[in-house]
Amino acid sequence: MPRYLFTILFLWSFEFSLAQSVSGNWTSNLPASTITEAGSNYSSNWTSLTNQSVISMAAWLTNYTVRVKKIDGVWHSDLGLWIHKTSDRVGLLGSAAPSGNSTYFQLTAADQVFFTTYTGVTLTGLPSFNIQYEIRGLSVTIPAQTYSTTIVYTISSP
C-alpha cells in the first residue's frame, strides 16, 4: 500500500511541477473603418475574443490564487486595458471565485487578485480559464501607432 501511495504522490508531484501557463497573445489592428462619419470619434471599446488567453493550471486538487498586472511598453495614459474571466474549466468539486463570467477590471502596474480556484479533479485534461481583454479610452486624439503592454500573471498555491 505505501508503495502505491508513494507512486501516486510522486506522479502527482511531477504533474504539479509542470509550470502553469498562459497561452494566447492579443495582436490586433483597429480598422480605420471603425469611424464612418467625419467629425466622429471612436464610439466603443475594442474587445478581444472571449478566449483570447487561456490560463492552464498544472494540477488537480489544488488551490491557486491568480494575480495580474501589466508592464507597459509603448502605451498612452488615456488608454485603459481591462480584463475579465469568461469561463472556468475545473473538475469535480472544483470552484473558482469569482466564478464563470466575472466583471471587467482595469489592469495597473500593481498586482491585483484576479481570481482564486480549487481545481477539483477529473480524468481528462487540466483545469483552465478563458480570459478576455478590452481596450477603453480610445480616441483619435491619441497618436496613431502601435501600442504594447505585457500582462504578467502570478499564480501561487496555496
Binding site: A19, I35, E37, A144, T146, S148, V152
Partner: peptide
C-alpha cells in the same frame, strides 16, 4: 513543499491605432 508553488507567466497585447482622415 511542492504544493507551495509560485509561478509567473505572461501574455502580450499589441494593437495599432490607424491613421484616419475624414472630411465632410
Amino acid at each position: 513543499c511542492i504544493q507551495t508553488a509560485w509561478c509567473q507567466t505572461s501574455a502580450t497585447v499589441n494593437f495599432t491605432l490607424p491613421s484616419i482622415a475624414l472630411l465632410d
